[in-house]
Nucleic acid binder design. Structure first.
Length: 529
DNA sequence: CGAACAGGCGCC
DNA sequence: AAAGGGCGCCTGTTCG
């Protein structure tokens, strides 16, 4: 059974509508006394809940209610709109309803972005339950004809929404005291009145000294002028370019840039803004990246520097289970292309490939595969690619077909059917066409990896719920998951991750020899190997 | 004055 | 040695 759910406005009442699998109403709409009634329904009937958007589930979580299965109409609409070749068209509930009635949809309302999500809530229109039911029914019709891949993708995307909201609610354990200690070690004591911390100030002074005049190291233009005066004409101030310059300012400047980045992006201001009560609670945007990867809002959640990861520590008596998929994208390529010899087992793929084809040079093997998937042609990649083309013709043909499709302005799709954005006016120009070819080449692999990860999350969440496990998913980053678990169930949680990874591979590709191993480690701190 | 853009770099 | 896919977010700079 399915149940459409409308939380109603803040001070209003929640409403539900029982539906058949195809989305047709199975009864009259009902008004609930309170949100607790949702919990009772979940306990006794465990329906698939049809939500208009993530915020509907956020309202439930705020009341301590979680559910097992969902259909997120906004996310599914985005998948269907893209599949129809209209990527980027409005896909919120209002837009979907308008499209259903043959009207031109208005742009989606802007995402609310004014602080941590738990602290605000934008009231939905008074009664959108009827719209939700109509849109959902239309989506079920579309999914019925779209095929099993799209149906799995719609379910996984919706499960991703559940995971994302629950992760935000749970928060990533974050020790402010450890973070502060790391900052003091790297930057010196926190400056009381703002300004540069001692070590940054010292490095800036060293840069001034090396140039013989004040130079703002934060201003690329000033730095370029200073080097030019010293006889070094640079195109940029990127660190790799600076490293090739023989000048006494280079060393302090590079050190400054590294520490300044930490200070500005993950310094004391970040800590104050984003960590409350021992938790970092970013908001995850499911499907926020064209490839289906998640984006995040607030705190740069998907760019936590390695240098700060020691601040992520389990609560006393708890552990972190840190699991990341090994060489996920080349394994996806092996599965997608049917070139299974590319990924023969569980062992490190690059090392194995290097032993067979690249004289044991793992770096070469990695560069070759990265180049194949990203479309790199320069910097010595060409000779490596020739080796790949000879040994793995099907895999290379797969990415090259995808690149050609992009160059010709055609759409490409992931394994389950996520569709890339359409070509834009101007993309037929040679340089733009090549760029689009690189994009579509990468899209097929990255988007399929993203949906594998999505199915993994859904499987893992399902396993943990079925087992009544107290372990919680607390972080997800493309091919890596973190769980927070009581020490006594940490090993079982790691085992659940392995099982979920295997299940995700089967859900996508059936019984093939390619493996998608996840290395799971049980640690107290995220920095521990 | 704020908005928009560019340069740069963190992560995958 | 230094280029190719996807992001978010900081600072500096320019523009209106």
């Amino acid at each position: 059974m399915r149940v459409a759910f409308d939380p109603g406005p803040r001070d209003g009442v929640p409403r539900i509508w029982r539906l058949d699998e195809d989305g047709a109403p199975a009864a009259a709409p009902e008004t609930l006394a309170d949100l607790a009634a949702v919990a009772a329904l979940e306990k006794h009937e465990a329906p698939r809940w049809v939500f208009a958007r993530a915020r509907s589930y956020r309202r439930l979580l705020a009341s301590g209610i979680d559910v097992g299965r969902a259909h997120d109409a906004e996310l599914v609409e985005g998948l269907l709109v893209a599949a129809a070749g209209h990527f980027g068209q409005p896909h919120g509930l209002a837009a979907a309803g308008a499209r259903l009635q043959g009207r031109t949809p208005d742009p989606d309302p802007p995402a609310v972005d004014d602080g941590p999500p738990a602290l605000f809530d934008t009231a939905a229109p008074a009664d959108e339950l009827a719209d939700l039911v109509a849109v959902h029914a239309a989506q079920q019709r579309a999914l019925a004809t779209a095929g099993p891949g799209m149906r799995l993708l719609a379910a996984a995307e919706s499960a991703g929404m559940l995971v994302a909201e629950e992760m935000t609610a749970a928060g990533l354990p974050w020790r402010a005291d450890v973070h502060d200690r790391l900052l003091v070690e790297l930057l010196g004591p926190r400056p009381v009145l703002g300004g540069r911390p001692p070590k940054l100030a010292a490095l800036a002074e060293a840069v001034d000294g090396a140039f013989g005049r004040p130079v703002n190291p934060d201003s690329p233009a000033e730095v370029l002028r200073a080097f030019a005066r010293a006889g070094h004409e640079l195109a940029t101030t990127r660190s790799w370019e600076l490293k090739q310059v023989d000048h006494p300012a280079v060393a302090p400047l590079l050190a400054y840039k590294e520490l300044a980045r930490l200070h500005s992006a993950h310094g004391w201001a970040w800590l104050r803004s984003w960590v409350r009560d021992g938790r970092f609670r970013p908001e995850y945007v499911v499907g926020g990246v064209v490839s289906g990867r998640w984006a995040s809002r607030g705190g740069g959640a998907l760019q936590i520097p390695k240098a700060m990861r020691a601040a992520v520590r389990a609560d006393p008596g708890w552990r972190l289970v840190v699991a990341d998929a090994a060489q996920l994208e080349p394994r996806m390529l092996a599965a997608l292309s049917g070139d299974h010899a590319l990924a023969p087992g569980d062992e490190d793929l690059y090392t194995a490939l290097a032993a067979r084809e690249f004289g044991g040079d793992r770096g070469k093997a990695k560069l070759a595969l990265i180049s194949a998937m990203y479309g790199q042609t320069t910097g010595g990649a060409a000779v490596l690619l020739a080796t790949l083309r000879r040994r793995f013709p099907a895999a290379m043909a797969f990415v090259e077909d995808a690149a050609r499709a992009g160059e010709q302005g055609r759409l490409v799709r992931s394994h389950l059917g996520r569709t890339c954005p359409s070509a834009r006016p101007g993309d037929e120009q040679p340089a733009a066409a090549r760029a689009r070819g690189r994009f579509t080449r990468n899209f097929v692999v990255q988007a399929t990896a993203a949906e594998w990860a999505l199915v993994l999350l859904a499987e893992l969440r399902g396993q943990l719920r079925a087992a009544g496990s107290p372990a919680r998913l607390v972080f997800f980053q493309h091919d890596e998951v973190l769980l927070h678990a009581p020490a006594e169930v940490a090993d079982a949680t790691a085992a659940a991750v392995h099982a979920a990874a295997a299940a995700a591979g089967r859900r996508l590709f059936g019984d093939i020899p390619v493996r998608f191993p996840m290395q799971a480690r049980v640690v107290e701190g995220y920095d521990e190997r």
